[in-house]
Design a binder for these strands. Sequence first.
DNA 1: GCCATGGCTAGTA
DNA 2: GCCATGGCTAGTA
Length: 101
Amino acid sequence: MQPFTRNVINVIKKIPTGQVMTYGQIAAFAGSYRAARQVVRVLHSLSEKESLPWHRVVNAKGEIALSDDSRLLQEILLQGEGVEVDRNGRINLDLYQHHPD
DNA sequence: GCCATGGCTAGTA
DNA sequence: GCCATGGCTAGTA
């Protein structure tokens, strides 16, 4: 496993319950601020294996980026942690975005 | 090495 | 347009 991938995993794992982070934000904390799409890849390939809180990752606008069933599941999981999701699948980042040190 | 992948995103029009 | 990975393929040795 490559260092960047490892970093991405670590950052995602540290997102607290009830908060979210952005793809690009995670990439930045992992050491490569433009590598948002790599974060997508990690989420795809390692969410299950690494038990990642994948549902706490949203796009830069605070929207759920998934579709259909997955989207609904993500919404339910977030709401279950007390995160408000409006009917457009949007989260208020001012309230719920996690900012690591 | 090359190339597809992928749930993106800053910044222009 | 950006870019790190994994998988696959030429093309050396």
